[in-house]
Structure formats: C-alpha cells, structure tokens
C-alpha cells in the first residue's frame, strides 16, 4: 500500500514530463494551422480536403 502512494506521484511526474514534450511543440495544432493556411494560399475547395487531420493526445 505504501509503495503504491510513492509510485503514484512518480507516475504523475513521469506523465507530466511526458506531456511537457508534447507541449513543447503542439504538432497537431501546427498541422491544423498549416492546413488552414495551405487551403487559403492554394485556394482549395473544402471538398478535396483529406481527412488526415488527426486528433492526437
């Protein structure tokens, strides 16, 4: 039981550390932003937009 309480914060710490990397550069948001700009610059119709914008977490 005691071990569990020690392990939990450590796991949380590890998790937050892991998330920090994720935050360091928001890849999904950047892809979304890139797609938005690309559509405008290339004046693409929404219809030919491939459904590849993945929601990552």
């Amino acid at each position: 039981m005691k071990k569990f309480w020690i392990a939990l914060p450590l796991a949380a710490l590890a998790l937050s550390a892991c998330v920090t990397i994720n935050i360091y550069f928001p890849a999904a948001a950047a892809e979304k932003a890139a797609d938005k700009i690309i559509e405008e610059v290339w004046q693409m119709q929404q219809s030919d937009k491939p459904a590849t914008v993945k929601e990552t977490k």
Binding site: L13, S16, T20, P26, A33, K57
Partner: peptide, 17 residues
Amino acid sequence: AMLTLTVSLNVMAAADL
C-alpha cells in the same frame, strides 16, 4: 496537484496555434 497540472498542460497543447 500533479495530475491537475498535467491536465492543464494538455489543454494548452490542444489549443489552436
């Protein structure tokens, strides 16, 4: 608190650029 922090950071990452 740790978990809360994690969650808030996640939210930030999901936000738009």
